[in-house]
Design a protein around this nucleic acid. Structure first.
Length: 178
RNA sequence: CGUUGGGAUCGGGCGGUCGCCGCCCGGGGAGCUUACGCCGGCUUAGCCGGAGAGUGCUUUUCGGGGGGAGGAAAGUCCGAACUCCACAGAGCGGUGUGCCGGAUAACGUCCGGGAGCGGCGGCUUUAAGGUCGUCCGACGGAAAGUGCCACAGAGAAUAUACCGCCUCGCGAGAGGUAAGGGUGAAAAGGUGCGGUAAGAGCGCACCGGGCGUUCAGUAAUGAACGUUGCAUGGCAAACCCCACACGGAGCAAGACCAAAUAGGGGCGGAUUGAGGCGGGAUGCGCAAGCAUUGCGCCUCAGCGAGCUGGCUCGGUUCGCCAAACGUCCGGGUAGGUCGCUUGAGCGGCGUGGUAACGCGUCGCCUAGAGGAAUGAUCGCCACGGCAGCAAUGCCGUACAGAAUUCGGCUUACAGGUCCCAACGCUUC
RNA sequence: GGCGCUAUCGUCUAGGGGUUAGGACGUGAGAUUCUCAAUCUUAAAACCCGGGUUCGAUUCCCGGUAGCGCUA
């Protein structure tokens, strides 16, 4: 676990440390195209995804291979279509009405989104695309922001580990077949 | 200055770092298309072909500018705008509103006025009551009708007589009463004096009511005068009556584009053209008529017996049906675009009106998302509480998040500011 | 987002202005039985909250709260 952390995220953490010394909050982008938007995507993640439990949230994630299923009929544009979803990570939030009024729900979702934005660079190296759904719990409203950020970081590390192991296994199998 | 009540208004501020969603400007990339322009060819008013975004559309990225939750955005309780559906008119039914006048696009909202069946406080009075101030309210109708008024109580609705009182009578009892007691939420005008066997509007005075006239007022209503001794309660947020209003659904309304899959329809497949006659459909037109489309019959000309299957089998002729396939059209799902923010808009000034509000003029543009942006974090200041002599430290800063848009109502709310009224204290 | 409905013992329900709020299942106690079950007797246990109308409200009216349903 420590070795994977050092090998995989060492550069990113160094960059974060540099950013911390210069400015307060780390850089990171979380535009609309990285959001999970459609109801069917949410249902697919809930139905066939894996789960990771944490103190203030539950994280569902599902690895998808979009270059296998629909795209290969267009041979000319296959390059860009493969290049585009290669590192595509989409994250969605589900905050149900049972967690409070709209002000509290908005605050939970915004803090979660901010924490996801800070750590989204960790998942850049994953081949293929991952859909993630985060369900906050009611305790995340009063929790401190560094704790939430830490939990998100741990969840992302697990996701990266699982998906990375899968990729490694595929690579080993290919090497053995060769 | 303080307390209480009412009203209006604001709803923490500044900065650092990193972000999110629209809009505008500029640069780059990708995709689509070819109207103008370019190139080439030809049978040259033009046609055909090619490359390609310089002008186009979509998308993405970078840089800059500017904007980005509320007084209640909430509850969805009323009223409208807007959209679709339905619709000859009227009635019944249903729902809602309810003093009077006005404002308004409309309202159950607002403004002004009236009355009190209300609460509180002051004054007056023996009391009933009157009067003043303030607050308040879903304040039409109870001799149009129906219904209900439990228990208690003698009696609870065109009333009754338990204990009483008085008269007659030895008594049993009979009669007259409704002052007093008692029950109740409510007992049939109130107080006082007279009167009486005892009593009673039985008579009188005052108060309260009913009716009528006059005056004031747009009206609700009020005042004055006259008259009437005055049994006839409460509940209509019970049914109901009267007056007035209301078609239904709601932006997930609705409009447009439209993948994949399945399915529907037309034509070709399944021979061509011209003319005439007959009648049909659609569109335009008041009509006459015109245009388009396709059907039947006849005539003439042309092609020439056709590579699928079926109509019991085989041959010939004629005809019908169906399939593969091709092409066109329509409905429509996922998805996308519009509706979507310039509006009964906001502010200033003037003016009419007691006011709500109206009119005129000048200025301004003020969120527009769509699994849903408007933020996260840090520091300083402000305010409040606690600890502390102090410095300072810690904690807290409400209610709450646009979803088509307005006008209201209701509900929630830390704290700050201003105004008005009453009362109390101090000073002049 | 819009529209509509409901709220009664622990659960399912009846009642519809009047003072003991009824029933069934469940719970507790007792009886019966050697014991349990079944049966019988008995007890406790509720009108979502706040205002208003009324003499009186679980019921009628208004406003909140909670739950449920329909709608692309």
């Amino acid at each position: 676990m420590l070795s994977t952390e050092r090998s995989g995220g060492g550069r990113g953490r160094n960059a974060n440390a540099v950013d911390d010394s210069v400015s307060d909050t780390p850089r990171g982008r979380f535009p609309k195209t990285a959001h999970l938007l459609k109801h069917s995507d949410f249902q697919r993640v809930y139905k066939s995804g894996r789960r990771h439990f944490s103190g203030n949230m539950t994280v569902f994630y599902l690895r998808t291979q979009p270059e296998v299923a629909p795209e290969p009929n267009e041979a000319g544009a296959a390059e860009e279509l493969c290049a585009q979803p290669k590192g595509r990570v989409r994250v969605g939030f589900t905050v149900s009405k049972a967690l409070g009024g709209s002000v509290e729900r908005n605050r939970m979702r915004r803090r979660m989104r901010e924490a996801v934005r800070h750590h989204l660079l960790m998942l850049e190296c994953i081949s293929g695309s991952v859909d993630i759904v985060i369900n906050p719990k009611k305790s995340s409203l009063v929790a401190e922001f560094p704790q939430i950020s830490q939990e998100i970081e741990r969840a992302f590390r697990v996701i990266r580990q699982n998906c990375g192991i899968a990729g490694k296994k595929i690579g080993e199998q290919e090497a053995r077949s060769r």
